[in-house]
Write a protein that binds this DNA or RNA. Structure first.
Lengths: 162, 162
DNA sequence: GGAATTTAATTGACATATAAACTATTCACA
DNA sequence: TGTGAATAGTTTATATGTCAATTAAATTCC
């Protein structure tokens, strides 16, 4: 049950053991996230689009004709306000996003997916969905559900009111 | 067994369900990593140091008087080569790191923790180790070990020769 | 109705990241 | 031994992410 030197530890080439399992789990989460991010990045690379950009486009597709205020897009990502403005600028320059000031609340900028953006997403959908099947590697559906449940608990413990 | 709307899904305010549990697990990993990163970031904020910087200093402390070539430091982080140069520059300017060209292999730059760097780390150690106890929130040691084991399998599936 | 507050978004400054191109040094091996 | 390949590190360019300050519009509340 107890694998001798600890694989993660060897991975990091650390000399000292982890302070606690808590510590080790946190590092495992951070490093696995990097692996996952890189994996999706490679899937998207041929389309010259990054994972956060792809996520924004998918969010806008979900919003449909109603569009979505800039900060609502940010709220659905990890991202804070300033980052989303820049990213939206890039997506706009590439012709995938359109923006218009909201009539109802003139402070808001509504963002929409363009037809070009929708076409791009359609091209990406198939390889991307196929990637989902590979991202968790050798894990069973049951393992995935366990991870989902446990990590949910971690996030919950750190969550603001929500 | 099947929780009705899915908490993560609600978190993301997505309309459509995840394509698969694989998909959902990947998103859970990415979002939890962000939570963990932010948590450690807040612990370190009073010391005006970032998590990656702190990791570099700890690696150099581990290396001791022998020091460590720049790219060896990078190898122990997620980080690729160019990033480590900049970060080391910043740590040098702050007086926490010292550098010297290796005599044995004149291509290498050996990096060392300075006495000031060591003092800083000592100040951070206690609050940081205390944070380890909180980072995994309500999870038991057993849960942590489960997460460690499952995520290890995910990384393994994506690993290069190693 | 109008001053104070809040909210949506942007700007500027800085830290991480990654890819590509480059310099300097070392190594492999014919 | 000497040339071509590999390695260590930096530079440049671009993208993501965060904080603090700012602008403009909407809301609160006397």
């Amino acid at each position: 049950m107890k694998q001798p030197p600890g694989r993660l530890q060897r991975e990091l080439r650390q000399r000292r053991p982890f302070v606690s399992v808590s510590d080790e789990a946190a590092v495992a989460i951070l490093r696995t996230a990097d692996v996952v991010r890189r994996f999706y990045g490679e899937v998207l690379a041929p389309f010259e689009i990054t994972l956060p950009q792809y996520n924004v486009l998918r969010i806008l597709r979900g919003a449909g004709d109603a569009g979505l205020p800039t900060l609502d897009v940010a709220a659905r990502l990890i991202e804070s306000a300033p980052g989303i403005t820049l990213m939206m600028d890039r997506l706009f320059k590439r012709g995938w996003v359109r923006r218009r000031r909201a009539r109802a609340d003139r402070r808001q900028i509504l963002c929409y997916l363009t037809a070009e953006g929708a076409t791009l997403l359609e091209q990406i959908d198939t390889p991307f969905d196929a990637a989902h099947a590979r991202v968790m590697g050798g894990m069973t559906a049951r393992d995935c559900r366990t991870v989902i449940r446990l990590l949910e608990r971690v996030r919950q413990a750190h969550s603001s009111p929500d």
